[in-house]
Design a binder for these strands. Structure first.
Length: 252
DNA sequence: GCAAAATGTCAAG
DNA sequence: TTGACCTTTTGCA
């Protein structure tokens, strides 16, 4: 399930299958029938991931925009897929996405414009995010989830990067002094996530048991791995936040 | 076997 | 802030 690392991994896996190929596109489930007809038979030119968004660019200024949301999946589950892409040798099926639509270049630009820097893009830097954070009274735990501040970070990386920086989620952005460290850490963690196709932040050795993969995420009530204090949880930005009240105590 | 939750977003009120 | 949407997994009977 998808935070930014999943999307970048999909792009990496799909490139050798689709780029340079003429692609047969259909909508067995019917909901994307018109879009599929528009794209069907075109050659895929490139695949571009950005944050949690994924674009398959085709000849003729049209692209397929996919956002997996919470449940979307390529090549999993049963029943008729929303979208099917086939070449001579590959078959990809998309089920349960939040977004599956045809974009023009202008549509794609409009989405990109609303997104903050993506830690997984080599040329992005954290400066734009740093400025937003430094100006804001909003809690850092909320800012990290805002895709216009930072693209690709979701609920797991939020909890884990805050813990690794020993940063309280409740500190207002303008008072945060750990941003540079968190940006660098996100780059490393998310790259690792692309390699593993999975989020592991504890440095646990493979094979990593599920209960050893995270410091605090989904560990409410369990002992903090560092200090033993029970991990706490509370809804922030509409999602369950997890943190250690001792290691991530607010300053002062 | 079913209810609830889940790595997400948007639009309505 | 809430509800809607989409699907799979988890936890409790």
């Amino acid at each position: 399930m998808p935070e930014g690392h999943t999307i970048h991994r999909l792009a990496r896996d799909h490139r050798p299958l689709l780029v340079g190929q003429q692609v047969r596109i259909t909508s067995p489930q019917g909901k994307f029938a018109a879009g599929a007809a528009l794209l069907d038979g075109r050659t895929c030119l490139r695949i571009e991931p950005y944050g949690k968004h994924l674009w398959y660019l085709f000849e003729g200024d049209l692209s397929l925009h996919v956002h997996l949301g919470l449940y979307g999946k390529w090549n999993g589950g049963g029943g008729p897929p929303r979208l099917s892409m086939t070449t001579g040798s590959a078959r990809l099926e998309l089920r349960g996405p939040t977004a599956c639509e045809v974009h023009t270049t202008a549509d794609r630009r409009a989405v990109l414009q609303r997104l903050g820097p993506d830690p997984l893009r080599r040329t992005d830097d954290g400066h734009r995010a740093a400025e937003r954070i430094a100006r804001s009274r909003t809690a850092i735990g909320q800012l990290l989830m805002d895709q216009s501040v930072l693209a690709g970070v979701g609920n797991v990386y939020r909890a884990e990067v805050l813990f690794r920086a020993r940063q309280s989620p409740f500190t207002p952005g303008r008072d945060v002094t750990t941003w540079d460290a968190m940006w660098l850490d996100l780059r490393a963690l998310m790259r690792q996530g692309v390699r593993d196709n999975r989020i592991v932040t504890t440095g646990a050795r493979r094979p990593v048991r599920r209960e050893d993969a995270h410091w605090v995420y989904r560990r409410a009530g369990e002992a903090c791995r560092v200090c033993g204090t029970p991990v706490r949880t509370e809804v922030m930005a509409g999602r369950n936040l997890f943190w250690c009240p001792t290691d991530q105590a607010p300053d002062g």
